[in-house]
Amino acid sequence: MQENMEHLIELPQDRTQERLHVALAYFVDYMERPRDASEVLKDRQQAVPVEMLPMLL
């Protein structure tokens, strides 16, 4: 095994990039959290617009 492991993720040096990474981490945490029953019941299936369907002919 290699004793001196390199970092795979470089920390941002720019303040704007740092804020972007924090916002992205928050969004990912939000999307991966378990949803409660009231949120699941609010989900409704919707038809896909015809423009998004591939041509079948």
Rank of each mutant, 00 (worst) to 15 (best):
E6N: 13
H21I: 01
Q13V: 06
V28G: 01
E10I: 00
V22A: 13
E32D: 05
R35Q: 06
R15H: 14
E18R: 12
H7G: 05
L20E: 13
L8M: 14
T16C: 09
E39L: 01
R19G: 03
D29T: 06
R33Y: 01
V28I: 05
Q17W: 11
V28A: 07
V22G: 01
Y30E: 08
F27L: 15
T16P: 00
L24H: 08
L24Q: 10
E39V: 01
E18L: 14
P34Q: 03
P12E: 03
T16N: 11
L8F: 06
L8K: 12
A23Y: 04
V22Y: 06
D14C: 09
L20K: 10
Q13A: 04
P34L: 01
V28T: 08
R19D: 10
R33F: 01
L8C: 04
A37C: 07
A37W: 00
P34C: 01
R33C: 02
L8H: 10
A23Q: 13
Y30W: 15
A23R: 08
E10N: 11
R15E: 13
E10D: 15
A23N: 12
E18S: 15
E32A: 06
E6C: 05
E18T: 15
Q17D: 12
M31Q: 02
R33D: 04
L20N: 06
Y30H: 11
H21K: 10
R35A: 05
L24S: 11
Y26S: 14
E18Q: 15
L24D: 02
L24Y: 03
M31L: 04
L20P: 00
M31I: 09
S38T: 12
E39W: 09
F27W: 05
P34D: 03
R35C: 03
D29V: 00
H7C: 10
A25P: 00
H7V: 10
T16D: 13
Q17K: 06
E10K: 09
V22P: 01
H21M: 15
E6H: 07
D36C: 01
Y30V: 07
D36W: 00
L11N: 12
V22E: 10
T16R: 13
D36G: 05
D14N: 14
E32G: 03
R19F: 05
V22H: 08
L11P: 00
D14T: 02
P12R: 02
E10G: 05
L11A: 10
A25E: 10
S38L: 12
F27N: 04
V22L: 09
D29E: 07
